[in-house]
């Protein structure tokens, strides 16, 4: 019940913020609504038991990217609160296309029976977040007493505590797949190579962005127009 309530609050905030980003013309207000939307998405991640991802969303997106965007707004504004308006015709066409796209997406989401598809997938021995139902059954069967705390500890590890598993999967290990007894699926691949690639990528981006945004002397165009 509480989960549902929280979901609705944050879902409405996320969608409302996104719609407000589209609807406002003032770019600083857009940044504000973007903060609201992305922050609510982070809250949805916490609800989806992805703690680390929610924290990363807050740190990188809301604290990093949006600050960068606002910084960009400040550096590129020619006057206070520059508004570059969209013409009404474009707004109408955009809204129509958007509604159509939304209709297509929503109707196709509604058509799919996810449970059936999940049944058809090869059953993974212990998906990290799916397993807790079985664990709870076990907890209920056990007599309440000294072992209850241990079981509860095991369950709490399942509730959004994915830091260790994520870290190991970046090192190329999959504790949720490989360490299960009788793992019939062989070694599940980890994410070591993508992780390394993304690290190099970040370094390249750092250098590239610094190169692109470096301070340049503006060429005086009246004197030498061919150089500008």
């Amino acid at each position: 019940m509480i989960e549902q309530l929280l979901f609705w609050v944050f879902a409405v905030l996320a969608c409302g913020g996104a719609i407000a980003v589209v609807a406002t013309q003032n770019v600083v207000r857009m940044a504000f609504w973007l903060v609201v939307s992305l922050g609510s998405v982070a809250a949805l991640f916490f609800l989806l038991q992805a703690d680390f991802l929610g924290a990363a969303q807050l740190l990188i997106y809301v604290g990093g990217t949006v600050v960068l965007l606002v910084f960009g707004v400040m550096l590129t504004a020619s006057g206070p609160y520059t508004q570059i308006r969209t013409s009404p015709a474009e707004v109408i066409v955009g809204a129509a296309v958007g509604m159509l796209l939304l209709f297509v997406l929503v109707s196709s989401i509604g058509k799919v029976d996810w449970d059936e598809i999940a049944d058809r997938l090869p059953a993974t021995p212990a998906a990290p977040v799916n397993v807790d139902a079985a664990q709870w059954q076990k907890a209920g069967d056990q007599p309440a007493g000294s072992s209850a705390s241990q079981v509860a500890l095991g369950v709490q590890e399942q509730q959004g505590r994915t830091v260790r598993q994520l870290g190991l999967s970046f090192l190329g290990l999959r504790p949720d797949r490989n360490l299960v007894e009788g793992g019939a699926h062989g070694l599940a691949p980890g994410y070591l190579l993508p992780f390394e690639i993304i690290s190099i990528h970040l370094l390249v981006v750092l250098i590239g962005a610094a190169y692109l945004a470096r301070a340049k002397r503006r060429v005086v165009s009246e004197e030498s127009p061919e150089l500008s």
């Binding site: 980003v21 589209v22 296309v97 958007g98 939304l102």
Partner: peptide
Amino acid sequence: AVLFVCGVV
């Protein structure tokens, strides 16, 4: 889906 459509628009 709503976030995606808003972003596209």
